[in-house]
Simulated scan of single mutants.
Amino acid sequence: MTDQVPVRAAKTSLEIINKVRELEGAGVSELANELDKPTSTVHDHLRTLESEEYLIKSDSKYYVGTQFLDLGEHARSRHKMYTIARQEVDELATQTGEHTNLMIEEHGRGVFLYKSKGPDTVQLDTHAGMRVPLQTTAMGKSILAFRPSEEVDEIINRHGLPQLTEKTITDRDELYDELDEIQKRGYAYADEERVKGMRSVAAPITNDKGRSVAAIGVTGPKRRLRGQRLREDVPDLILSSANVIEVNPSHS
């Protein structure tokens, strides 16, 4: 049984870090109440995390430290897809004037690996490292559409289909119907499924076996992403960018 103690302790530390991030700073008592753990336990973990420079303390509250910035940038820079696709994401943002993102799948969630802002962008909550349910974004759906159904089922069984807006897909059969359409069309849409008032278009980046390894997408306000721009212009640009990434010799 003793070999389980370090694992449990590590899990507690990670829960505390995530809760500090979620609350944008918190004190010992608040964290103990939120996590339903003894105050003494939370205090010990916080002191350890502070001494190791993963958390900082200010005015009786703990905050996530910049140590994670170093770790996150290391994780991103070693990811081959980031190196290959960054220039295409930047060019697509310039061409469309909108938010352009690169997403990968990790542990069954969509992870924003890189983001570029065009000259006409509105404020969005997305940032590098942000994790979202795959079925709530065009990029996530395009990744799922080019994965085996068994893998999609595993992801749904693990994470469910959480609802973020009234338009989020929460039904498994409805999702599979849409994934079939995405396979035929080659790209995906999301219409206010994660953020109200925003639409997205995305295409998968696939390997030589046709399996999605990432996705590239454009997000903008409904009033700008509509008509021919939504149906033809932006999808054509995204498909072209995805193709450039796929034929890069480093991709495979």
Rank of each mutant, 00 (worst) to 15 (best):
G97M: 01
K117E: 15
D36W: 09
D177I: 09
Y176N: 06
H251F: 14
I155Q: 08
R229T: 12
H127R: 01
S29T: 10
L161D: 04
V20N: 02
E88N: 02
M130P: 03
S149W: 10
A202C: 03
T83W: 03
Y187E: 07
L230W: 04
M81I: 15
V5Y: 09
V247H: 13
G217I: 12
G25A: 13
G160D: 04
H79N: 11
H107G: 03
R223M: 15
I156R: 01
V152R: 02
L175F: 08
V244T: 12
I245P: 01
L179T: 12
K61S: 02
T96W: 10
N101A: 13
R199I: 11
I104C: 03
L46N: 05
Y176I: 13
A10F: 15
N248R: 00
N207L: 08
E15R: 07
T219E: 01
I17T: 03
G227I: 15
G129E: 09
T12I: 12
A75L: 14
R194P: 02
D208S: 09
R47F: 11
T96K: 00
A215Q: 03
G140A: 05
R76A: 15
E98G: 07
E106P: 11
V5C: 10
A214N: 09
A203I: 14
T94D: 09
V64H: 05
M1G: 08
K141N: 05
A202S: 04
K11M: 15
E53Y: 12
N157P: 04
Y189C: 05
G217V: 08
Y114E: 06
H127S: 02
D36H: 06
G108L: 08
E98I: 05
Y176M: 13
A93I: 15
T219P: 05
E192L: 09
E34D: 09
I16N: 05
G129Q: 02
Y114M: 04
K61D: 10
E174Q: 06
L69S: 06
A188L: 09
E193W: 08
Y189H: 01
L14F: 07
N243P: 07
I84K: 00
F112M: 10
K196W: 13
S60H: 10
T83Y: 05
K80V: 14
D59H: 13
I56F: 11
L92A: 07
N243D: 15
L239N: 08
L14K: 01
M139I: 14
P38D: 14
D59G: 04
V213K: 07
V89Q: 01
E50T: 07
R76E: 14
S58V: 09
Y176Q: 04
R109S: 15
K196M: 13
N248G: 06
L225W: 12
M139N: 14
L239V: 12
G110L: 11
L71F: 11
T48E: 07
A9M: 13
T83Q: 06
D120P: 00
K184H: 05
I104A: 01
T41H: 01
